[in-house]
């Protein structure tokens, strides 16, 4: 039995179809029209204790909905969810004390109170023992560099500061499982790096099991080995991040700077582009073209000043997967 088990889970929302204009508004009042919106369709996955799993997909894919079901907030329409032996939405009160959730788009802090007062309130709510609270607070504020604003009311914090405070707020009770739903949204490069390092340490050092939702693939690369991709409510990939590269990242790009102007013959399965300064770019799939053969031919027959080979970055691969899925439908 896995630590987190999700089996054939679906969630449907009822959305009202609004007609436009004044007459439409009147029509809506007397004859409301409803439509079913399948936010999550028959999703299954298992996660083991101590794993860190990236959970990605385009806007509206159903990520937040899944996280809300895993947190016991929303009831699935069908399917089964089990986390650490609990059924989240049925045993909510007992269950939520064991988990931490960060919603990047929703603050859990008290708007009017200084950050530290919100923390004290959470300490009481979760009945965190004094020593654990003090230890966690000290360690987290240090790691996330928060001492400068911990006494300020939340409404006076910048977005990045608020986000760091929100992350600490979700962890004060030392949860074994944490769901991060876009914890880096709106955070600058340095801030993101701090948060990533923090999350990584939490996973590697403390063995916290986590699901990490984001639109920034570098977040995932820095923290997770495994990746789940969903699109339009369906799971379309579940596996190692590195395997994704092998499956979809087969495109290679070779840039060669020649010493003089050259005329090249055509190469099979390779597209060649001319760049400035006698430079040429060769693009090909590494499962169709033998890279050492190609290089041998170029290096053997011409004078080469510089050579550089690159593989696609993960963003490009993800983009390819998202759009491919849409093309299939």
């Amino acid at each position: 039995m896995s630590f987190i088990e999700v089996k054939n889970v679906s969630k449907t929302f009822k959305v009202s179809r609004r007609r436009a204009g004044a007459i439409g508004a009147a029509a809506n009042f007397f004859v409301p029209k409803f439509e079913k919106k399948e936010a999550v369709k028959n999703i299954s996955f298992n996660i083991e204790k101590g794993e860190a799993v990236g959970f990605i997909g385009p806007n509206g894919a159903g990520k937040s909905t899944t996280v809300k079901m895993l947190s016991g907030i929303l009831h699935p329409n069908s399917g089964e969810i089990k986390v650490g032996g609990y059924i989240p939405y049925k045993q909510r009160k007992a269950y939520v004390g064991k988990i931490g959730v960060v919603f990047g788009q929703k603050s859990q802090l008290q708007w009017d109170l200084p950050v530290i007062d919100s923390f004290e309130l959470l300490k009481a709510i979760y009945s965190v023992p004094d020593d654990v609270y003090r230890k966690n607070l000290e360690r987290f504020t240090e790691m996330l560099d928060m001492s400068g604003f911990i006494g300020q009311p939340v409404r006076q914090l910048s977005l990045g500061q608020r986000m760091r405070a929100d992350i600490v707020a979700a962890l004060l009770h030392s949860p074994e499982i944490v769901f991060f739903d876009e914890p880096t949204i709106g955070v600058d490069v340095v801030g993101k790096e701090t948060i990533r390092a923090f999350i990584r340490e939490l996973n590697r050092q403390d063995g916290v099991t986590m699901i990490f939702t984001t639109h920034d693939m570098r977040d995932i690369e820095k923290t997770c080995r495994r990746l789940i991709i969903i699109n339009e409510g369906e799971k379309i990939y579940d596996g190692a991040l590195s395997a994704l590269r092998e499956m979809y990242g087969t495109t290679r790009r070779l840039e060669v700077a020649f010493s003089e102007k050259v005329d090249l013959p055509g190469f099979e399965n390779v597209t060649v582009e001319n760049l400035e300064n006698n430079k040429k770019r060769f693009t090909f799939e590494n499962n169709k073209v033998q890279i050492n053969e190609l290089m041998n031919r170029i290096l053997g027959e011409y004078n080469v000043r510089d050579i550089n080979i690159s593989e696609p970055d993960i963003e490009t691969i993800i983009q390819k997967i998202y759009t491919k899925k849409e093309a299939e439908i």
């Binding site: 947190s71 016991g72 907030i73 007992a94 988990i99 859990q108 709510i125």
Partner: peptide
């Protein structure tokens, strides 16, 4: 305003 989500995350009644 959707803040019911965070309310339901608290291990209390």
């Amino acid at each position: 305003d959707g803040s019911i989500a965070t309310e339901f995350l608290r291990p209390i009644s």
